[in-house]
Simulated assay, not measured.
Amino acid sequence: MPHDEAPLLEVQDLEVHFPIRAGVFKRQVGAVKAVDGVSFTLKRGETLSLVGESGCGKSTTGLALMGLVKPTGGRVRFEGKEIEGFRRAAVKQYRRRMQIVFQDPFSSLNPRHKVRDIIRAPLDVHHIGTPAEREQAVAELMQRVGLRPDQADNYAHQFSGGQRQRIGIARALALKPDVIVCDEPVSALDVSVQAQILNLLMDLQRDLGISYLSVSHDLGVVEHISTRVAVMYLGRIVEIGEKTQLFEKPLHPYTELLMRSAPSLDPRHRHAFSTSSDDIPSATNRPSGCAFHKRCPLATDLCRTDDPPLTRREAAEHRVACHHR
């Protein structure tokens, strides 16, 4: 993929803060800074994975891009056009081109609807095609994701977890989107079917040129499907780069912690990295300076007072927010 290609999606200083209210009059006394100044780009046909501990803001970032939560600040551009300035018709068009696959393949499907109704719903909402064409599209989508069209009259509870996720993927594909947000798409599935779903997503990307924003805490999944990886900590990206660069030579101490924490059969890699404290700071009271300094063995006085910017390092695509790397 050429590096000078214009990005399909540009995110600049995205913020999502949830107010904390207390007292009789429910006045705001603070805020949960779930996403606190996130910037990245997504090119056509690539997969950018957001990875980090639970509560780091990765899922909220994806939901904000979908319009399912309202950003507090920042800018999002799609094909160079700022979404905030879109008129109503343009917003609807944008939503056609941005779809999502949810984490839980059961709760994300309406148990009262047949599979044909679930997959056809986006076509109905956007008034695409005639009724006969929509039925034909449902059959084609089911075949594309590995389901039999004669199962279209079944309900979600009649399918296995992996099949339900295929239904969710078919629904996301119905509008022929350019970008799909994959929010932990295999974490609720048996290990035996996770690879099947991941390979399906990769095959669809190869055939259709879809871009994925993948949200995951599983480094095995991230390494399997990613083009680039962004590591998030307490609402901010602390390291971003090409997958190979980041896995072979992680620069941020937190990224190294994640890598070392992954299960390994090699005893030399077990617990090879430890933090100075296991006390994880809260997003409601972000520490001064580098947010990771209380857990970082490399921390100095500079880390406690100055928040390091995301700075380009050795490779053109590799950036890290650390004073010592």
Results as ranks from 00 to 15, higher is better:
Cys296Thr: 01
Thr284Met: 11
Leu265Val: 09
Arg260Met: 08
Thr300Arg: 08
Leu258Gly: 01
Arg270Asn: 13
Leu302Ala: 09
Asp279Glu: 14
Leu258Gln: 00
Leu257Gly: 07
Pro297His: 02
Asp266Arg: 04
Phe292Gln: 07
Thr300Val: 09
Ser282Gln: 04
Pro263Leu: 02
Ala262Asn: 13
Leu302Ser: 06
Lys294Ser: 15
His269Arg: 15
Ala262Gly: 12
Arg260Leu: 03
Pro281Trp: 01
Arg295His: 03
Arg295Trp: 00
Cys303Gly: 05
Arg295Asn: 01
Phe273Asp: 15
Ser261Thr: 10
Lys294His: 11
Leu257Tyr: 04
Arg304Gln: 12
Pro263Val: 10
Ser264Gln: 13
Arg270Met: 14
Cys303Glu: 06
Ser277Ile: 10
Ser276Leu: 08
Asp279Met: 14
Ser274Tyr: 09
Asn285Met: 01
His293Trp: 10
Ala283Gln: 06
Ser276Gln: 04
Ser288Glu: 14
Ala283His: 04
Phe292His: 00
Pro308His: 03
Ser261Glu: 06
Arg270Phe: 15
Ala291Arg: 02
Pro263Gly: 03
Ser264Lys: 10
His271Arg: 11
Pro267Trp: 02
Thr300Gln: 07
Cys290Pro: 05
Ser282His: 00
Thr275Lys: 01
Ile280Cys: 08
Leu257Phe: 02
Arg268Pro: 07
Arg286Asp: 10
Pro297Val: 06
Leu298Met: 04
Thr275Val: 13
Leu298Ile: 00
Gly289Thr: 11
Gly289Ala: 02
Ser261Trp: 05
Arg270Cys: 12
Ser276Trp: 05
Ala291Phe: 09
Pro281His: 04
Ser277Lys: 00
His271Asn: 13
Asn285Gly: 07
Leu298Ser: 05
Ser277Arg: 04
Gly289Ile: 09
Lys294Cys: 14
Asp279Gln: 13
